[in-house]
Structure formats: C-alpha cells, structure tokens
Design a protein around this nucleic acid. Structure first.
Lengths: 173, 173
DNA sequence: CCTATCATGTAATCCGTTACATGATTAT
DNA sequence: ATAATCATGTAACGGATTACATGATAGG
C-alpha cells in the first residue's frame, strides 16, 4: 500500500499540470510553470523533481524512464491521482490568503512612505504593463489561465493605486 | 563573533515588534502579531520563540531571564539589531509578491467557476466587512498600520469584484 | 573549437508548521 | 475545587530553498 502523505498546493500544481499534459517530465513541468502559472504561484525547479517522486511513491503518478539517451523520468496520472485532483478542484478553498507583501511590511514598521512608494510603484506599474501585454497577446489561453491573469491585473491595479497615493504624500484611504 | 544568518521576513517582524515595544517576551510578540499585523502576515507562536533565540545568537537581540517566578525570556534590540532593522526599512523591496491564492489556483486548473465563486465571494465579503469594522473602530493606530489596513481593504474589494463577476457566470475581465 | 547557456538532476540545509507538554489564571 | 483556558515553551518533522554537479546544445 502506498504512503498517503498530505498533499500540498505544490502537489496539486504537479497533478494539475500533468493532467493537462498527459505525460510530462519534471523539466516539462518547469516550463509549464514558467508559462503563466508562475506569475501567481511559482515553484522552484528542484521541487518539481522531489514532488513528482513523492507523488509517484504515493501512487498518484506513474514513473517511467525513457529507455534512450537521457533516460529522463516521465510521469503520468494514475486513477488515484486523477481522483485526488478532481476532488480538490470540486472543493471550495476555505483559507484566507494573506497579502504578505514586503513593501507593506516595511510600511507597517514605519518606513518613510515617500522613500518607499516610488520604488514600489515602479515595480507594480511594470508588472501591470507586463500582464496587460500578456492579455493582448494571448486570447487563446484556457479560461482558467485568462481568469488568473485578470485577477493579477486587478490586484496590480490596486497596488498601483495604493502606492501612487502614498508617493504623492497622501494617506492611502 | 556571533553567527550571521540570513534575515528572513520573520526576522524583521521580530526586530520591528521588539523595536516598537522596547522590551518583549515571545509571548508579547505573539499578542502584537495578533493585534493587526497578523491580518496580512501571520506568524506561528512557536516561531517567535525560535526566531528570538536565533536573533539573540546572531547578536541582534539581548536575552535576559526574569529572575522571579516565571523566569520568562525578555528580549531587547542591540545596536546591531537596530541597525539591521533600519537598513531594511530604508531599502525598497525589490521582489514581486505572488498572489498564491488557492481559489485562483483551482480556477486555473479548470474548476467550475459557478461552483467555486460563491464560497470565495462569501469568504472575501466577510473579510472585507471585518477590515471595514476595524477601520471604523481604530483611528488611533500608527500610520503604517492604518496604511496596511487600507491595502487589505483595497485587495479584498478587488477579490469581491472578481469572484462576484464569476459567480454571475461572467468572464472576470 | 570553445564557451556560454540550457537541460536535468541530486544533496544539504533551514525555515516554518505541527505536535507535545506543563505551569498559571480565571470562571463556575 | 475543578475544569477550562491562557501562557509559555520545546521537540520533531517535512517542505521549500539553495547549492552543487554534469551532460547537451547553440553561438561565436
């Protein structure tokens, strides 16, 4: 009987990506993360190796080795993996996501807004522009990816509003 | 010569809180976190014990034991700790904060928005109401805390917009 | 050809979470 | 008194980051 470790968000990221691809090596997953998902939930490449191995040990993925040259490990979903993914997808998230923004933390501890805000503003304006360019470019992405992009744009707009007011010396409210 | 470990966000949270209090036990810090900061950056209480000890070993805090009954450990900033904190406060944050929202992750992987959105909406509406009540109640908080609260309100409003549109079956854009 | 970068993976470290444990207060 | 909760701390575990390492591909 396979071990049944607790599944973390990264577990579901791996399951979701493998489900979308059918078969994938950890390096494939790395590229998939880089292509969109990583904007709002990045994963270190090393973790894609350990997590696929863990999920295989748990019976959620099958692991094969390419017989030829590189002998890379290729993973596919098992029935258990597919079930775990769809259960998770069907369950609404319960927990609240904290902002955990370093700029905000500095502000909280008394950093000078006039010194802090311009840099933060620049950061978020650049990110917003990047997201808006992505939206213009990729209208053929799946609905979930487009929705995530819209969320990103909305929150970046909010950050821009917030830091712009502070940069002007106004109170953020 | 004290070890010089890398300072994490939690390190600065401890330094910042001790700076504000003058002297504090880990339990004091726990209560401080609960009173506002924890809304956007929570810390497990156990970590406040290990992190204070780590910072003391690093020469950033002094550690004393109360001589009487409970013999609790009481911490204060050293000059090095104060310098580390103010350096950090004076340096704008460079790194981008990812959203890392579980609901958004499910959406990305194809969860049905009509099933997901109502629960998410309820969650964020409640949080928004809580923040707005806090704003009404506490106008005497330090400026940084008020600013953080405003940021929280702005982002919760954004989430409410986002999930409300999805709950209605509209595309989020 | 040479070297820079990409591709691919393993190992070690450490922070953060979870679990455990016990002494003090408060409430009933 | 006794239960319940608060206060205070330690220990163990595991996921996530960082460091290390080597084979392939492309650019010059």
């Amino acid at each position: 009987m396979p071990e049944r470790p607790k599944l973390t968000p990264v577990s579901y990221i791996v399951l979701g990506l493998v489900a979308g691809a059918g078969r994938a090596t950890p390096y494939d997953l790395k590229r998939m993360v880089a292509g969109g998902l990583g904007d709002f939930w990045s994963v270190q490449h090393a973790q894609l190796y350990t997590e696929t191995a863990r999920l295989a040990a748990a019976g959620m993925l099958t692991e094969e080795r390419e017989p030829d040259g590189r002998r890379r490990k290729v993973y596919e979903l098992t029935a258990a993996g597919r079930a775990a993914l769809s259960d998770w997808l069907a369950t609404p998230a319960r927990d609240f996501t904290e902002l955990r923004d370093l700029g905000l933390l500095k502000l909280y501890f008394g950093a000078d807004p006039r010194a802090l805000a311009p840099a933060q503003l620049e950061l978020h304006e650049a990110k917003l522009a990047e997201y808006e360019a992505l939206r213009r470019a990729g209208t053929d992405a799946p609905a979930g990816a487009l929705a995530a992009l819209e969320a990103g744009i909305g929150h970046e707009r909010e950050w821009v509003r917030f830091w712009r007011r502070l940069a002007k010396g106004q109170t953020p409210g």
